[in-house]
Every structure is written in structure tokens, then in C-alpha cells.
Simulated assay, not measured.
Amino acid sequence: MIKAVIFDMDGIIIDSELEYLKMELEFARTKNPQVQLEDLFGMVGSSREDAWSCMARAVHNGQTWQQLRDEFRASVDVYAQMDYRRIFRKEIPGILDRLQEMGLRLALASSTGLPIIHRVLTENNIHHYFEEIVSGAQFKRSKPDPEIYHYTAKKLNLPENQCLAVEDSTFGVTAAYRAGMHIAALYDSRFHFDQSLADFQIKQLEEVVEIVRQLQQD
């Protein structure tokens, strides 16, 4: 019996991943003009260290991931440039309404830092839907480590197998799988994510509602 749905944010609530990657690619090419967008796909859905380690491998110029991240943050204010209303998935409020009407508890578990999570949810008027909001920045290791999902389930006082995670990235799907959760993975042809560990692959987020119905009947 599914009792909670736990949403990722980037790529699910907001279509942000390509927007971030474009800015990161522009920065990477100042270090190494040969870097391709595909070289940075490992940054999507991962923790700060994992993401910028991917950048370090891509530019391969001797700088550490910390040095690259600090330089990027000093020169590019990514979050100030983002219009989170523009990239918000408009179908989300209706989906959250329907899940609540079905008696589901809702949570969010994102690798993004809490200030940005709160900004996204507040600017799009969906903060009130989520009983628990968890950031990967709270842990030594975020996705694909399962700790963020174990912690979120514990906060909900539910066993992991009563939770459905809605994810997209390889790291996110892997984290939910390792935590023992059911997984609905939103397909995205742009990034070639490995979603083979997911129970369901969906093309539209609205499919989550029907998946919950199906799981509640099992």
C-alpha cells in the first residue's frame, strides 16, 4: 500500500536541468573549449561534490572540483538569473491536488540546497502541499546515496516500501532504488538517463496518479 509520494525537484517540479547545464557548459569551455554538453550530464541530479567532480573530469585542467565550483559561483549567479515560474511544470498543482484527495502524503527530496527549494516552492505557490522538505545538502552524501530517501521516509514515519519516489536522473533513480522505494521515472530524451532500476517509466507526470491507484490495489 502506497501512503506517500516523494518528489524530486529539478527535472520534475521545474524543468531546470538544461538551463543550469547551459551555464555550466559556457563556464567549462572557458577552461577547455572541447567540452561537450554530454560531458556534463553527470552533473544532473547529483550532489555538489559529485556534480563538480564531473566538471573537473570534463575540463581536465588540474583544478579541483572545489576550485572550479568556487570560481563558477564567484563569476556566475545562476539562481539570480533563473525564472522559476517560467520553467515550472504547470501540471504540478493539479497532480498534487489529486494525490492529496486520494489521501496521499507528499514530500520533496532534492539535491538542491534548502534556500533554493523554498524559493521554487514559494514562487510557484506549492509550498503548502509538502509535509516534509529535505535537501541533499543536509547529508555527507546525497543521491545516488539512499540516505536522503531513508531520512525522508523516517520523517514521514513510514517504511520505504510504502513510498513512491518520482525521479528522472540516473542518480535519483538509483538513490530511490537503493532505499527500497517504488519508483516512477519521468523519461527525458535529452540526457540519456539510465532509468532501468525504476518500476515505471512515464512520459507525463499525470501518470503518477494512475500508478498510485495501481499500487494501492496490489
Results as ranks from 00 to 15, higher is better:
residue 149 Y to N: 07
residue 119 R to N: 04
residue 100 Q to Y: 06
residue 170 T to E: 03
residue 149 Y to V: 05
residue 167 E to N: 09
residue 162 Q to E: 14
residue 141 R to A: 07
residue 134 V to C: 08
residue 146 P to A: 10
residue 203 K to R: 14
residue 99 L to P: 05
residue 183 I to M: 02
residue 131 E to S: 11
residue 200 F to E: 14
residue 109 A to P: 00
residue 205 L to G: 12
residue 187 Y to S: 12
residue 210 E to P: 09
residue 149 Y to E: 05
residue 171 F to N: 15
residue 104 L to Y: 12
residue 157 N to P: 06
residue 115 P to E: 03
residue 184 A to T: 10
residue 176 A to E: 07
residue 104 L to Q: 14
residue 213 R to T: 11
residue 162 Q to S: 10
residue 177 Y to W: 13
residue 211 I to E: 05
residue 201 Q to L: 05
residue 131 E to R: 09
residue 152 T to Y: 05
residue 117 I to Y: 06
residue 189 S to W: 03
residue 117 I to A: 07
residue 125 N to D: 15
residue 99 L to Y: 04
residue 161 N to V: 08
residue 155 K to Q: 15
residue 161 N to C: 08
residue 105 R to W: 09
residue 160 E to F: 04
residue 194 D to P: 11
residue 194 D to R: 03
residue 183 I to A: 03
residue 126 I to G: 00
residue 176 A to V: 10
residue 171 F to Q: 14
residue 178 R to P: 10
residue 146 P to C: 10
residue 188 D to C: 12
residue 142 S to T: 12
residue 136 G to Q: 03
residue 182 H to V: 07
residue 141 R to W: 04
residue 140 K to V: 15
residue 100 Q to L: 03
residue 150 H to I: 09
residue 170 T to Q: 00
residue 112 T to K: 02
residue 117 I to N: 05
residue 136 G to L: 01
residue 198 A to W: 11
residue 155 K to I: 10
residue 106 L to P: 02
residue 145 D to R: 01
residue 161 N to M: 08
residue 130 F to L: 06
residue 189 S to E: 12
residue 198 A to M: 10
residue 115 P to I: 00
residue 145 D to G: 07
residue 203 K to F: 06
residue 203 K to Q: 13
residue 157 N to A: 09
residue 203 K to L: 13
residue 155 K to L: 14
residue 200 F to P: 11
residue 123 E to R: 01
residue 132 E to F: 03
residue 132 E to Y: 06
residue 122 T to K: 11
residue 126 I to Q: 00
residue 197 L to D: 08
residue 163 C to V: 13
residue 159 P to N: 03
residue 165 A to H: 01
residue 147 E to M: 11
residue 130 F to H: 06
residue 200 F to T: 10
residue 155 K to E: 13
residue 151 Y to P: 09
residue 142 S to H: 00
residue 109 A to M: 00
residue 143 K to R: 13
residue 166 V to P: 00
residue 101 E to Q: 15
residue 111 S to F: 00
residue 194 D to E: 12
residue 118 H to V: 13
residue 212 V to Y: 02
residue 208 V to F: 01
residue 105 R to C: 10
residue 123 E to D: 15
residue 175 A to I: 04
residue 168 D to G: 12
residue 207 E to F: 02
residue 108 L to N: 04
residue 190 R to S: 05
